[in-house]
């Protein structure tokens, strides 16, 4: 019961921010940051250091030594003189990260998306064809609006740009409606937690 009262007090301290920034809010915020970071640290230590380094090494798997040494260089940032050492493991992560991204990303977000936009069965019902045409217009007009920002002199440019804005607003409207929904859901959960206390 006492614990519930403490949590309730901390919840109210967070909501006191709605009135204005204050000591109670700041305290709770920093407290949450501290315990969350500690939890992250613990899991990372158990799942990272112990599972990926300590256990393999204790089983005589020496393959982890080289990446571990490279990883240790990250701690070069503790001192200004050795800070450059951290760039080597970072270079490795950045390099392979960037390389891994290229192929599958092009296929997922460009090739497959273009394919679905332009290919559809000729036996589709009329409303599918109608919807596909609207998707193509929305796609083209939105891209045109963003890509040809400066060339808006000719009437045709203005018409396409306006169409682009129209579809953009529909897209943003849908996202905004959904965002409202998401935020309210978060509050519902907190209220349920508080009701549960009593």
């Amino acid at each position: 019961m006492l614990i519930n009262l403490i949590v309730l007090f901390l919840i109210l301290s967070i909501y006191s921010f709605l009135y204005k920034d204050n000591v109670f809010f700041k305290f709770t915020e920093r407290f949450v940051v501290g315990i969350s970071a500690a939890y992250g640290f613990i899991k990372l230590f158990q799942r990272g250091f112990i599972d990926k380094l300590y256990i393999p090494l204790s089983h005589g798997n020496l393959a982890v030594i080289f990446p571990a040494l490279l990883g240790l260089l990250f701690f070069g940032t503790l001192n200004k003189k050795t800070a450059f050492l951290a760039k080597f493991p970072l270079a490795f992560l950045l390099g392979i990260g960037a390389g891994l991204e290229i192929g599958p990303r092009i296929e997922t977000d460009i090739v497959k998306q273009i394919y679905t936009t332009i290919i559809y069965s000729p036996h589709s019902p009329w409303f599918t064809i109608f919807n596909n045409i609207i998707i193509i217009i929305a796609l083209f007009a939105t891209m045109y609006y963003f890509l040809f920002v400066l060339r808006k002199n000719r009437p045709i440019d203005r018409i396409i740009s306006k169409t682009g804005i129209f579809f953009l607003m529909v897209g943003f409207g849908a996202s905004f409606g959904y965002t409202i929904m998401a935020r309210i859901s978060l509050l519902i959960e907190v209220i349920k937690t508080v009701i549960h206390f009593f």
């Binding site: 497959k112 679905t116 996202s175 965002t179 929904m181 998401a182």
Partner: peptide, 24 residues
């Protein structure tokens, strides 16, 4: 989450995602 849901509709149309639950 509902915030992200509208982002994933292009993947539903392309059948990369076979089903989607959006938000509460």
């Amino acid at each position: 989450t509902a915030v992200m849901a509208s982002e994933y509709y292009p993947y539903i149309q392309s059948k990369q995602l076979l089903g989607l639950l959006g938000g509460l």
